[in-house]
C-alpha cells in the first residue's frame, strides 16, 4: 500500500500566504507608480515607463539565478535534495524574469532605437544568458538518474551564473555598447538615456525592491513546493508500479 497521504498538498504556510498577498499588492502598486505617478519622459514619451519593469526584472532574475548558485553549492556540500529544488526554482523563475527583461527591452528599442534588436554587447549577453538557463531546464529533463542529475545541474547552475555577471558588467567592460546607463560615465555611443529625476527614482526604487526580493522569493517558494510534491508523486508512482 502506497503512502497516499504524502501527496496531500500541505497547507500553504502563513508566511507564504502573506508574501503572496504582499507581492500581488506590491506589483499593482509599483505598476501604478510607474504608469500614473511618474511623469512622462518628454523626449522618449510613454514607452520610457517600461523601464520601471525592464531594469527591475533583470535584478529579479539576478536574485533567482543567485539562489540557484546558493542551492547548487549547498546541494554539493550537503547532498540535501531541498537545495536542488531551490536551485531549480531559481532557474525557472529567473528565466521568466530574464525573458521579461529581454522582451521589454526589445519593445522599448523599437521606437527609441528604431529597431527591435541589435547585436549590442549587452543585448547579446542577455540573450546568451537566457539560452544558457533554457538549456539548464532541457538538460535537467534529459537526465534520468536522480543523483547524477542533481550533481550535474548543481555544477551547471553555478557556472551559468557567469553569464549573469557578464550581462551585468559588460557595459563597463565593452564600452562600444549603445545600451544606456543612468549612473557613472555613460558609454560614448549610448542612445536613449534619460535623467534619473526624483519622479523616476520614486517609481524605480519600490519596483526594484519588489522585483529584487518579494517577487523572486514568493514565486520560487511556490515553485519549490510544487517540485516537492512532484518528487513525492514520482517516488510513489514508481513504488506503486513496482508493487
Amino acid at each position: 500500500m502506497t503512502r497516499i497521504a504524502e501527496l496531500e498538498p500541505a497547507p500553504q504556510p502563513r508566511m507564504l500566504r502573506v508574501l503572496t498577498a504582499l507581492t500581488a499588492l506590491g506589483f499593482l502598486a509599483t505598476l501604478y507608480l510607474g504608469l500614473f505617478v511618474a511623469g512622462t519622459d518628454i523626449e522618449q514619451g510613454e514607452i520610457q515607463r517600461i523601464f520601471y519593469i525592464h531594469m527591475p526584472s533583470f535584478f529579479g532574475a539576478f536574485t533567482a539565478f543567485g539562489a540557484t548558485v546558493v542551492g547548487g553549492l549547498l546541494y554539493l556540500a550537503r547532498k540535501n535534495d531541498a537545495w536542488d529544488r531551490i536551485a531549480l526554482a531559481g532557474v525557472e523563475v529567473g528565466l521568466a524574469f530574464a525573458l521579461i527583461n529581454l522582451l521589454t527591452g526589445s519593445i522599448w528599442a523599437r521606437p527609441i532605437w528604431n529597431t527591435w534588436w541589435t547585436w549590442d554587447p549587452r543585448l547579446t549577453s542577455a540573450a546568451v544568458m537566457c539560452l544558457i538557463y533554457a538549456a539548464y531546464l532541457m538538460l535537467r529533463a534529459g537526465i534520468d538518474d536522480l543523483s547524477r542529475k542533481r550533481n550535474f545541474m548543481s555544477v551547471y547552475g553555478i557556472f551559468a551564473f557567469v553569464s549573469v555577471l557578464t550581462t551585468l558588467f559588460i557595459i563597463r567592460i565593452v564600452p562600444e555598447t549603445i545600451h544606456p546607463v543612468i549612473v557613472g560615465a555613460s558609454p560614448q555611443n549610448a542612445q536613449g538615456s534619460f535623467e534619473a529625476t526624483s519622479g523616476v527614482v520614486m517609481a524605480l526604487v519600490p519596483s526594484l525592491l519588489l522585483w529584487l526580493t518579494l517577487m523572486p522569493i514568493t514565486l520560487m517558494w511556490h515553485r519549490y513546493r510544487l517540485e516537492t510534491r512532484k518528487e513525492a508523486s514520482d517516488r510513489l508512482m514508481l513504488q506503486a508500479l513496482s508493487d
Binding site: T40, D41, I42, E43, Q44, G45, E46, I47, R49, I50, I53, H54, S57, A96, L99, I100, L103, T104, I107, W108, R110, P111
Partner: peptide, 20 residues
C-alpha cells in the same frame, strides 16, 4: 521637439510582462 506618442509600445510591453 514633439514628445512621441508611443503608448501602443508601452501597452505591448505590459502585455508581454503579463503574458510571461
Amino acid at each position: 521637439f514633439i514628445t512621441p506618442d508611443n503608448s501602443r509600445y508601452l501597452a505591448l510591453g505590459l502585455a508581454a510582462v503579463f503574458l510571461i
